[in-house]
């Protein structure tokens, strides 16, 4: 098996050489350093670090809130994608452009802004205060920030798939006597499932690693509203490099698992489309 098999154009050595060097220096070597650093811990030490009660509490918050946010985004993101592709309404182009705001708005700005809105004296927070519900500085606030940050993923993965659906299929369903409800739930929505899963996973993966938009609204109380990425920073500030690294490796492992899962779903979906 030769490294280079085909291609007549020049520049393979130069472009591949630069690509591999740059990739190794910026991404691969530093990540290897992270793994290497973990080996300074023995296995029991590593397990202790990543399963201490404070760390476990942060996993529960991070993964729980990320999961809820991803579910909510999957529902409302689908509605937004649907109305952008299927319906015409005034201001549609503005809504379409706004969907990318969480990508474009720096996370720190999102963080302080959401905190200001949902704090007890904020424009939405004060509506809930008489009901005895606080949003900022609780897991609820964390979830809201994660909804904000994950919204574009679901919309932007569903949108192109919805656009590319063949209208003939829906006409066929209609001519075979299916009601509109039946067509949508049994014909249209099932063909969206791979993209839906991808959007959900991307939104979830982003939420798990998110720091900037959460750290202001969460209040950062240990055991209660402390997210896992913050815990890494806290340990670094206490010069507990090994502890920070151990938690980092766990998060890295989870990110890679999600990345592989997303790639797998997309591959499956690709094959699915070829067969039909």
């Amino acid at each position: 098996m030769r490294f280079k098999s085909t291609g007549v154009l020049p520049g393979f050595g130069l472009s591949m050489g630069f690509t591999l060097t740059y990739l190794s220096l910026i991404v691969l070597l530093p990540l290897a350093a992270l793994i290497l650093k973990t080996t300074t811990l023995t296995w029991p030490q590593f397990v202790d670090e990543v399963t201490s009660p404070r760390v476990m509490a942060s996993y529960r918050l991070t993964f729980g809130a990320s999961l809820i946010a991803a579910v909510i985004n999957s529902i409302f993101g689908a509605v937004v994608a649907w109305i952008l592709v299927r319906y015409d309404f005034y201001g549609k182009r503005v809504v379409d452009a706004l969907v990318d705001l969480p990508f474009a708005l720096p996370t720190a700005v999102a963080g302080i802004t959401l905190t200001a809105i949902y704090a007890p004296n904020g424009s939405i927070g004060k509506l809930f205060k008489p009901l005895g519900i606080s949003i900022a500085y609780t897991p609820l606030g964390v979830t809201l920030a994660l909804i904000f940050i994950g919204l574009p993923f679901v919309v932007r993965t569903l949108q192109p798939v919805l656009e590319s659906l063949d209208p003939e299929i829906e006409k066929a369903a209609l001519s075979l006597g299916a009601s509109r409800w039946y067509t949508v739930t049994r014909v249209v929505l099932p063909s969206l499932i791979p993209a839906w899963i991808t959007g959900f996973s991307l939104s979830f993966a982003r939420a798990v690693g998110e720091y900037g938009s959460v750290v202001f609204i969460s209040g950062n109380m240990p055991m209660k509203t402390e997210i896992t990425p913050l815990l890494i920073i806290t340990k670094l500030e206490q010069y507990d490099y090994a502890g920070a690294t151990a938690i980092g490796v766990v998060m890295l492992f989870i990110s890679f698992t999600l990345l592989l899962a997303i790639n797998w779903v997309q591959d499956k979906a690709g094959q699915h489309r070829v067969i039909h």
């Binding site: 530093p30 990540l31 992270l34 720091y211 990425p229 670094l236 980092g248």
Partner: peptide, 11 residues
């Protein structure tokens, strides 16, 4: 797919 915090940590 890597948390930004980890991006800082590795350096």
């Amino acid at each position: 797919s890597v948390s930004p915090v980890i991006a800082g940590l590795i350096y």
